[in-house]
C-alpha cells in the first residue's frame, strides 16, 4: 500500500520538553486517518513539521513522495531547501485558522488559487462551489474580519479543498463549530474521501474519529501508542469488560450459574442487578442470558459495554501516564 505520509523517528524538542518523540507515522493513500491524542500530545507539532512550518530535531519526513526533512544528516545549506512543490497536492487547515482580515472570503480563495497556479476559469468554477459547500453563500464578499469563528473555520475548510488536493490535513476541524457544523464537517470528510482523497485529521474528539476514520494513530507525549485500522486499534483493549443484568427477582442460583461461566471473573450483586466482570471483549450476552434463564431468572434488562475507541484511548493513555514520570 502506498504511503502519503511517512515519518521515521521524528523528534521535536522545545527546550527540555520533547513534543514529538521518535514518532513513526504511516498514512496510507485513500484512508481517513485519525490522529488522536489529548491536548499537548504533539499532534499539532507533528502536523506543522509535515506541512513545513517547523523543522524536526531528528528523524525524517516524507510527504507525497517528497523527502521534506533529512534529520540530523541534513547539512546547514540543505536545511534552507524548501519544498513548495510538495504542497501543490496538499490541502491544509490549521487549528483555529486565521486569515487576513482585510480580504474578502472570495478574494482569499482567489489569491490562494493563484498561488496553486489555478487558471481564472478554474477559480471561477471552483470558488463558488466551495463557498456553497461550506455554507458561506451570501457572505463570500464580506471581509474576513467580520466573520465569526465558525465562519473562519468554514473558509478554512474551503481553502484546504481549493486545489483538489490528494492529501487533506485537517487540524481539529470541528473546533469552534456548532453541533450542526460538526456534523457537516464529518459528512464533508466522508465525501472527500469517497473521491479518493486521503484525509489526515487530528482531533481530540473520540466520537468524531470513530465515526469518520478508517485508520487511527493514538499519540501521547509525542509517542505513538497505537497505529492501525480503527477496527484493529479498537481490538487492543485488554482487561475486564462489564455486563449489567437486571432480573425480576434475584436468587443465589442465578449468581451461582453466572459465576460458573468460564469467562466470568467476578460478580457483584446490587438488589436485582448483577454487574458481571468478564475476561473477554467478545459479545457473550447470549451465554449469560442462557445461564440466568436456566437458573430460573427472568431478565428485564441486559447490556454489555463493547470495546470502543474511547476505552482503548483511555487505557493506552492512562497506561502511558503511569509508566512515565510527569
Amino acid at each position: 500500500m502506498e504511503l502519503v505520509i511517512e515519518t521515521n523517528n521524528l523528534t521535536k524538542r522545545y527546550g527540555s520538553l520533547t513534543a514529538v518523540n521518535k514518532l513513526n507515522l504511516k498514512v496510507q493513500r485513500g484512508s481517513i486517518h485519525g490522529f488522536l491524542g489529548p491536548n499537548g500530545a504533539g499532534k499539532t507539532t507533528t502536523i506543522k513539521i509535515i506541512v513545513g512550518l517547523l523543522r524536526p530535531d531528528e528523524g525524517t519526513v516524507k510527504v507525497l513522495g517528497h523527502e521534506l526533512h533529512g534529520g540530523k544528516n541534513e547539512g546547514f545549506l540543505q536545511s534552507f531547501r524548501e519544498h513548495a512543490d510538495s504542497r501543490l497536492g496538499i490541502g491544509y487547515m490549521p487549528e483555529l485558522p486565521k486569515f487576513p482580515k482585510h480580504l474578502k472570503g472570495s478574494e482569499l480563495l482567489d489569491i490562494y488559487g493563484r498561488m496553486y497556479g489555478m487558471t481564472e476559469q478554474q477559480r471561477k468554477e471552483q470558488i463558488p462551489k466551495l463557498i456553497e459547500m461550506v455554507g458561506l453563500t451570501g457572505r463570500e464578499n464580506d471581509l474576513i474580519g467580520k466573520y465569526s469563528k465558525g465562519m473562519q473555520q468554514r473558509i478554512g475548510i474551503a481553502q484546504a479543498l481549493l486545489n483538489n488536493p490528494e492529501l487533506v490535513i485537517l487540524d481539529e476541524p470541528s473546533l469552534g463549530l456548532d453541533p450542526v457544523g460538526m456534523v457537516e464537517v464529518r459528512e464533508l470528510v466522508k465525501n472527500i474521501a469517497r473521491e479518493g482523497v486521503t484525509v489526515f485529521v487530528s482531533s481530540h474528539l473520540l466520537f468524531e474519529v470513530e465515526q469518520v476514520c478508517t485508520d487511527v494513530t493514538i499519540i501521547n507525549r509525542g509517542t505513538a501508542l497505537a497505529s492501525d485500522t480503527l477496527q484493529n486499534v479498537s481490538g487492543l483493549l485488554t482487561g475486564p469488560a462489564m455486563i449489567h443484568v437486571e432480573v425480576t427477582q434475584m436468587s443465589q442460583n442465578i449468581i451461582k450459574a453466572v459465576k460458573s461461566l468460564p469467562f466470568v471473573s467476578n460478580v457483584v450483586q446490587t438488589g436485582n442487578t448483577l454487574v458481571i466482570q468478564v475476561t473477554t471483549h467478545e459479545n457473550v450476552r447470549a451465554q449469560v442470558s442462557q445461564a440466568i434463564t436456566r437458573a430460573g431468572g427472568i431478565i428485564v434488562d441486559m447490556s454489555q459495554k463493547t470495546s470502543n475507541l474511547e476505552d482503548v484511548f483511555l487505557q493506552l493513555v492512562s497506561k502511558d501516564q503511569e509508566g512515565k514520570p510527569q
Partner: peptide, 27 residues
C-alpha cells in the same frame, strides 16, 4: 479521482510570486 502530485502542472515561479504580490498589495 484527484491528480497525484506528479501529475499536477507546476505553476511558474512568477505566477506564484505575483499571487503573493497581489496578496500583499491588497493588504
Amino acid at each position: 479521482m484527484t491528480a497525484t502530485n506528479q501529475e499536477r502542472p507546476r505553476p511558474s515561479w512568477f505566477t506564484r510570486f505575483w499571487a503573493v504580490v497581489r496578496y500583499e498589495m491588497l493588504w
